[in-house]
Simulated assay, not measured.
Amino acid sequence: MTISRSRRALLAVPALCALAPLAIHGRAFAADAYPRGPVRLIVPYAPGGGTDATARLVAKRLGERMGGTFVVENRAGGNTRIGTQALKQAAPDGYVLGMFNAAGPINQAIDPALPYDVTRDFTPITVIVRSAGGLWVNTSRIPARNFDELVAWLRAHPGTAYASSGVGAANHLSMELFRESLGLDLLHVPFKGSGEAAVAVASGEVPMSVDSFGPMEPHWQAGRVLPVATTGDERYPLMPDVPTFEELGHPELRGTSAWWGIAGPKGLPPEIATRLREEIHAILREPEVVQALLAVGAVPAPIGGEDFQQLLESDLAKWKAVVARGAVTQ
């Protein structure tokens, strides 16, 4: 007996329907079994900064919770460009992830010709932490002990240098806004990450910078540096006596706090992204992790995939406006 093509198609439908739950179960099983091998977590900075410290803490706990190995791989250079490009080129299988921060949208605002788009070429998994920065001065190079004294000293010493963790980094943009707002003459000296920049300021090689609490805290405790303002919307819990820029009469300089998150390549399976997000959010609720993050100047800020995507888009729009009015010089 000859069976028509349409008849064969109809007979195939029940079989396909029976296989569909198996396919869904297979994807769920794959997420449950993940990871089956080492996972590389790219940090686009040199070791020693806040991003690196946060990545190592989260990688360690992910490995312990998920029964795998998460290895931090530092790929410094180009103010996150090298590490971010490596993440874009990775296979979207969950075995290469990357740390993201505000430098991504800033780089794109400064250089639209980048070989990637932070809002389209990656899978945002979750924001991990936020950290307000401080305006720090080397106590042996600059005699100022508060914000007004610093501004007066800088006006009397044009061409004073400041350090950043790289061209286009959040602390670079913060210092450029500071320079523009107060009409100061400052010289930008970029380094490869907050760790190197913090050491440069603490040693007096460069006399000032905006940076997060973590890299600067030991130098502050040793009396080598002093914070005279913070960039957050509120006073930072670990620096309660240091006023915000808004309190000092400069609201235009607030809100440039740093954030750090984790993303994957574009096309990362949703079930793996969801599993990672859930595990990271659980880690951020652990009291010992919260304390460890506070020790490096970071406050847990678990923001999921869609909200993370919106953060990338809003940051890009904000920094494009800053660049468009000429507030950034390299």
Rank of each mutant, 00 (worst) to 15 (best):
T256A: 01
P190W: 05
P265R: 09
D93A: 06
D93L: 02
Y116S: 02
S165R: 06
D211R: 04
T80I: 12
L114W: 06
V137K: 08
V189N: 07
V299F: 09
W259A: 04
Q330W: 11
G49T: 06
G195Y: 07
W220I: 14
E271H: 14
R155D: 13
E278C: 07
G63A: 07
P44F: 02
G249M: 09
D121I: 08
T54Q: 11
N79T: 13
A229C: 09
G304F: 10
F213E: 05
H157S: 15
A46L: 01
N146I: 12
A200G: 13
V151C: 06
G232H: 01
T123L: 04
P124H: 00
Q221M: 11
S164I: 00
G326Y: 02
V242G: 07
T51W: 02
I125Y: 08
A76K: 00
A15D: 07
A144H: 10
A258G: 03
A198T: 01
A109N: 03
G68C: 08
A102I: 05
M66L: 15
A327H: 14
L41Q: 00
T244M: 08
P143V: 14
T160D: 00
V129A: 03
G98Y: 01
T256Q: 10
A109P: 03
T2F: 11
G195S: 11
